[in-house]
Design a protein around this nucleic acid. Structure first.
Ligand code: MN
Ligand code: MN
Ligand code: ZN
Ligand code: ZN
Lengths: 141, 141
DNA sequence: CTTGGAATTGGAATTATTCCAAAGAGCGAA
DNA sequence: TTCGCTCTTTGGAATAATTCCAATTCCAAG
């Protein structure tokens, strides 16, 4: 009974990049883990303020950027709407519900990922793939 | 010897949507067809000005939006960089070369598309999928 | 204790895009 | 034809997410 992917220690990951674990970074990250609804920077800002009332929006942007660099968080974009942030580290696609605006994680089996990468002709060396669905969701859960 | 997908007449498509074929719309569309390098609105603006020196940037945005509505053109976004425009109507993914910034069309076989759609759990009804690769390209052609 | 680099902060700046109100065009009815 | 209505274009102002900047503040090492 292994714990489900022991979440990489924030402090550890930051250290690996030669960065410090600050209260701001810790709270921003914990807010993302607590409610995984792909919030925007503004939404993260609002949630973090509850714990750190004096944090600035600029800092939230800085922290999010840092977390993305450390690969603890993914930045997700739909068209030109504000960037959303996702702490799910498993390979997954995103489903954007056009009615509600909600975003869902869709697990991507390695086999499918492989299949998708096979469409690339010789000479194309992909470092990442991104798959985004758009439509209507009525999730079972 | 059928012509390769007789490009839907712009005039026809516009009429279908109850819209008029204007010189501005025609030139914007022809510019997209002429050089399929996924230009931004600003780039389209520059190219169109050669033929219609008095066109405004607002009109270019309007025309592009119209062409997207008519489904003659796809809007393509990479992160938060300016939207790019693509007149390729076949199902295809995009490959974004991180070095050069160039964008390549990658044909998507129906089988792969089907496979990808199969990752959706019950309750998720997708109206479209978007696949984007990022990496380094050394295209054969 | 110092002190130098890292991090945060508030506010200004940037920039792609949208909005707006006024002027121009095209077309069918009279 | 002319009129009137609607669609379209246009230039400039406004918007909004994000980035930039310069001034503190923080902190860990010496
Ligand atoms: Mn939406
Ligand atoms: Mn790029
Ligand atoms: Zn996600
Ligand atoms: Zn394309």
């Amino acid at each position: 009974m292994t714990p489900p992917l022991p979440p990489e220690s924030l402090t550890q990951r930051l250290a690996d990049s030669g960065l410090r674990a600050t209260p701001q970074r810790e709270v921003v990250y914990s807010v993302l883990l607590r409610k995984r609804d792909h919030p925007t920077a503004e939404e993260v800002f609002a949630r973090v303020k509850a714990e750190l009332p004096t944090i600035s929006l600029a800092t939230v942007y800085n922290c999010l950027e840092t977390l993305v660099q450390c690969e603890l968080v993914r930045a997700v974009n739909f068209e030109r709407s504000p960037t959303r942030y996702c702490p799910n580290l498993r390979p997954h696609a995103h489903f954007h519900d056009e009615q509600t605006g909600r975003t869902y994680d869709i697990d991507l089996p390695p086999a499918v990922l492989a299949e998708v990468n096979h469409v690339l002709p010789a000479g194309f060396d992909a470092s990442s793939v991104e798959i985004t669905f758009r439509g209507q969701a009525r999730p079972a859960s």
